[in-house]
Design a binder for these strands. Structure first.
Length: 577
RNA sequence: GCGCUUGUAGCUCAACUGGAUAGAGCGCCUGACUUCGGAUCAGGAGGUUCUGGGUUCGACUCCUAGCAGGCGCACCA
């Protein structure tokens, strides 16, 4: 039940009718016309710009058109109390209180669907996120993208789309060789007392490798660790397995669950890279050429080589990109193209990639490749998750990857908890750097938006508890003449925005709108709740422990929306705090 | 040098794919409640939306030229 959509349709109907009667002229597309939430100061429920949009075409003032349209609209709808026309030409609609009673009735009868856009075409999305190298645990840097991807997936599936969540495992290439060697040296350290070559910059120094080594030793007692060349491949698999176990447990503690883990190694071994190159050659998307050194940089060591290049410039990239190294092996990009061919072949409507800020330069070549592979534009949407600045004791907190002393997801969750991490990481638009202040996140007060919203839910629960009712029990409307007060309608208006919030979050893939919305709703609720402190009549429960059923339903509606929203964000809504 | 991205109150950020007098929180200054449940609420001060042009009924939003920060720029994945 999206009242803005409903009224937009009514407005369309009215102007089409007026046009049929030759009262006005309307354009072919009605796209610019909207039905929106008016600013609070106007004491109005829905506003539309229709008169201003039509003004030019009709060569009439917006005012004149607005009067015509609004009087027609009002005549057709008994729930409208008043329509006013305001300055530049906005039409503001104000409903009778009974509108809101009906509104509440409608959404309580279709609880599960409220917020879901049932009219929208159901699409099939693939969301790829995290995809961190399987060389160690997830750290804070991975966290934001992980949560962003997860919540984008949640909101899309809430809005009735089909979503597959995927993790691409880069279990192939040089990094994996170095990683395997690192594990090998840790094993030798344990078994043969040889010191780990800590000064070798190619190796992974982190202590977690000691655990990996111990696990591998104890579960492979028949293995001989004397010669690396002999066990290389097996050890590589075992090490990756260790990493993935750890990564999956990290994801689990963040509340994240991928549907697929796709292995780069499998893609390579299945000859998908060769196949995709063949495909690109057949379609003339590749050629042998040279890449020029970037200008303005110190490029003394730059060597121009002829190599196989993908014509990404045909698709808007600023350079063509290398598919083959000089030694004849494929580049990382080549296998990534193969992976994306694999995605394209699985027939999704949209592919979404959540990338870290350090991959911004990678976006164009990826989307170029997907354009080429699918023959469709804008099939791949890349969302960048910007850096997180960690702050502790009012000071920035630096991690050093080289030393291996970075804050892991486990550290983070242990210190601040899953819910606070998710809520705060999401509280800002993904393309803005985020300050993650440990002290503020741990704070249990209104300074912490998570608790502020949860407290709202807990307060509602307490009302139900106090009258011995269950939040999940079925409540029926009894009094259809009941009218909500202005303060309550204020909250109901916010409730009516929920479907709009969901739609926008999906459309723009911006889930930060949800915490923002929930905070706002909670704020209005707290404000209302406090009225009861001074004025006992404004309390939900009367002196003789009674509550009007419509007020109970009112509370139920609010708690439902908070619950839905918090579910999408992936955090709990405790009934007691 | 090129590409992407960000620039909004002292600070951290919103602003519904172009709408109305640009909104919250923190901090600061007043006040309410001493709890239906301890995390709550009301009010005040605070703005040239980085700058200059343009597009139009209307611009934080779009275009353009700059300025400033961030990220990236071989065959590392």
């Amino acid at each position: 039940m999206n009242i803005y959509q409903t009224y937009l349709e009514k407005i369309h109907k009215v102007i089409i009718e007026l046009a049929n009667n030759n009262k006005i002229i309307i354009p072919e597309s009605l796209a610019g016309i909207n039905a929106e939430i008016p600013p609070e100061k106007f004491d109005s429920d829905i506003s539309t710009n229709v008169a201003m949009v039509l003004s030019k075409l009709n060569k009439k003032s917006p005012d004149e058109l607005a009067k015509l349209i609004s009087s027609t609209l009002k005549d057709s709808d008994p729930l409208i109390e008043d329509i006013s026309v305001i300055k530049p030409g906005f039409i503001n609609i104000k409903f009778k209180p009974v509108f809101w009673t009906k509104f509440v009735e409608e959404i309580i009868n279709n609880q599960k669907e409220f917020g879901v856009n049932l009219k929208e075409e159901k699409l099939n999305y693939l969301v790829e996120f995290v995809s961190a190298n399987p060389t160690g645990p997830l750290h804070v840097g991975h966290c934001r993208g992980a949560i962003l991807g997860d919540v984008i997936s949640n909101v899309l599936s809430f809005n009735n789309h089909k979503v597959t969540k995927e993790y691409y495992v880069n279990d192939y290439g040089n990094q994996i060789i170095n990683f395997t060697k690192s594990v090998y040296f840790r094993i030798r350290e344990i078994k043969f007392n040889e010191p780990f070559p800590i000064d070798n910059p190619d190796l992974y120094p982190g202590d977690y490798l000691i655990d990996f080594a111990n696990n591998i030793i104890s579960s492979n007692s028949d293995m001989n660790f004397e010669k690396f060349e002999v066990i290389n491949e097996k050890l590589s698999n075992l090490s990756i397995e260790q990493s993935l176990l750890l990564i999956k447990s990290n994801l689990k503690s963040l509340g994240i669950n991928h549907d697929n883990f796709v292995s780069e190694k499998d893609i390579v071994l299945n000859k998908e890279v060769e196949n995709v190159i063949k495909f690109l050659e057949e379609n003339k998307f590749v050629y042998k050429g040279k890449i020029k050194a970037p200008t303005g940089e110190d490029n003394k060591n730059w060597v121009e080589r002829e190599q196989l290049l993908f014509k990404s410039t045909d698709f808007g990239d600023d350079k063509d990109r290398a598919l083959q190294k000089s030694d004849g092996t494929w580049t990382y990009f080549a296998s990534d193209v193969a992976y994306h061919k694999n995605k394209v072949d699985r027939k999704f409507d949209f592919l979404i990639n959540i990338l870290g800020a350090d991959h911004t330069g990678y976006v164009k070549r990826l989307s170029s490749s997907v354009d080429a592979l699918s023959g469709t534009k804008n099939k791949l949407i890349c969302k960048i998750s910007q850096l997180v600045k960690l702050i502790k004791d009012n000071k920035p907190f630096k991690m050093s990857k080289r030393k291996g002393d970075y804050i892991t997801v486990d550290d983070l969750i242990e210190e601040v908890g899953k819910d606070a991490t998710r809520f705060i990481m999401l509280n800002r638009s993904g393309d803005v750097e985020l300050d993650f202040d440990f002290d503020a996140v741990k704070e249990k007060s209104k300074d912490n938006p998570l608790y502020y919203v949860q407290y709202c839910y807990a307060r509602i629960s307490s009302v139900f508890r106090n009258i011995d009712k269950d939040l999940n029990s079925n409540i029926k409307i009894k009094d259809f003449d009941f009218e909500y007060s202005n303060e309550e309608i204020k909250i109901l208006k916010k409730i009516s925005e929920w479907p709009k919030c969901v739609d926008l979050s999906c459309l723009k893939l911006e889930p930060h709108r949800i915490p923002t919305y929930l905070y706002d709703l909670a704020s209005k609720f707290h404000s209302y709740w406090n009225l009861g402190k001074q004025n006992p009549e404004k309390r939900f429960i009367s002196n003789n422990n009674q509550i009007h059923p419509d007020k109970l339903i009112f509370l139920k509606v609010i708690s439902n929306v908070i619950k839905s929203g918090m579910n999408i964000v992936g955090v709990d809504t405790p009934e007691k705090m």
